[in-house]
């Protein structure tokens, strides 16, 4: 079975020998020619230490992790670059903190120079309080970066029309928010997320707002191709344990989505047949 909207193969066999539930090998996430067996993207922000970050990356199973670009601090201890390259993950530089297309484009170009990747998680923020995307600036920056050869994954609102416009200018995926960054409010408009999945033919990565494992599972059940979690893991009481929870939630949600859930009904449907019921 192939899901034509995402170009990903649905699993044909959901079990493995040791009883652990794992996504089958062929059910890979494809973004612009790259393939990932994990459907969990990890944000590196907010971890209390590089050691915890390294352990959380390993436990999350994530193969694609975000990184930001900031002024170098010669006094900083430890190297994030070293930790990430030791983790064997692919870097997804972000343009966090940019409020204009101009700044975001420059930041993306600097990230390409620093990390030797054409991938960019494009963020163009509208204000400090909500950190919500600024749609016109985002679209402008996306178009410019695509034209410059970038593989653009825009952080966007949960607006299906904007998602479609972003894909129209050549974005390789869309990353709609569930709720504001770091809010942990989960997916406020699941209908829109489902609409986005129907509106575009590139991977949909639920980004921002994830609070706990059930939010990640819901995103996958709604049809998202992947989930990105940052604060939900990094700021959990036990980040490493939460990384593990998110990994399993994403796998469970994906399996449930591809398994095909039962329709919701207002009245009960007996699961035990009435046939042969004795009369007392």
């Amino acid at each position: 079975m192939t899901d034509s909207t995402t170009g990903t193969a649905a699993p044909s066999n959901a079990s493995s020998g040791n009883g652990a539930v794992e996504a089958p090998e062929e059910d890979v996430l494809r973004i612009a020619g790259r393939t990932f067996s994990s459907r969990l993207l990890l944000g590196t922000g907010g971890f209390p230490s590089l050691e915890l970050l390294a352990e959380a990356i390993a436990r999350s199973g994530s193969e694609l992790v975000t990184v930001a670009l900031r002024r170098i601090d010669p006094a900083a201890r430890g190297s994030l670059v070293d930790v990430l390259s030791a983790g064997g993950v692919e870097l997804l530089p972000n343009t966090a903190g940019c409020f204009t297309a101009r700044d975001a484009v420059l930041t993306a170009k600097l990230a390409r120079e620093a990390f030797q990747t054409d991938l960019v998680k494009l963020e163009v923020i509208g204000d400090e309080d909500t950190l919500l995307p600024d749609a016109p600036e985002l679209l402008r920056a996306a178009e410019e970066l695509v034209d410059d050869g970038f593989t653009v994954l825009p952080y966007t609102t949960d607006d299906p029309i904007l998602a479609r416009r972003l894909v129209d200018v050549g974005c390789a995926a869309v990353m709609p928010l569930g709720s504001p960054i770091g809010s942990g409010m989960g997916i406020r408009n699941p209908y829109n997320i489902a609409l986005i999945r129907e509106a575009v033919r590139v991977p949909v990565v639920l980004d921002a707002g994830i609070g706990t494992a059930s939010d990640a599972a819901l995103a996958m059940e709604l049809g998202c191709d992947a989930v990105m979690a940052a604060s939900a893991i990094a700021r959990a009481e036990d980040p490493v344990r939460m990384a593990s929870a998110m990994r399993q939630a994403v796998q469970a949600g994906r399996l449930a989505r591809t398994a095909g859930r039962i329709p919701r009904r207002r009245y009960a449907t007996a699961s035990t047949p009435a046939e042969g019921l004795p009369e007392f």
Partner: peptide, 24 residues
């Protein structure tokens, strides 16, 4: 990067040297 060894600075130039930081 290939130009770092030869790029000469003008007086008053604004230089930003950036690296990886933890981020969303």
């Amino acid at each position: 990067r290939a130009e770092w060894e030869t790029f000469t600075l003008a007086d008053g130039a604004s230089v930003e040297v950036l690296t990886a930081m933890q981020g969303g």
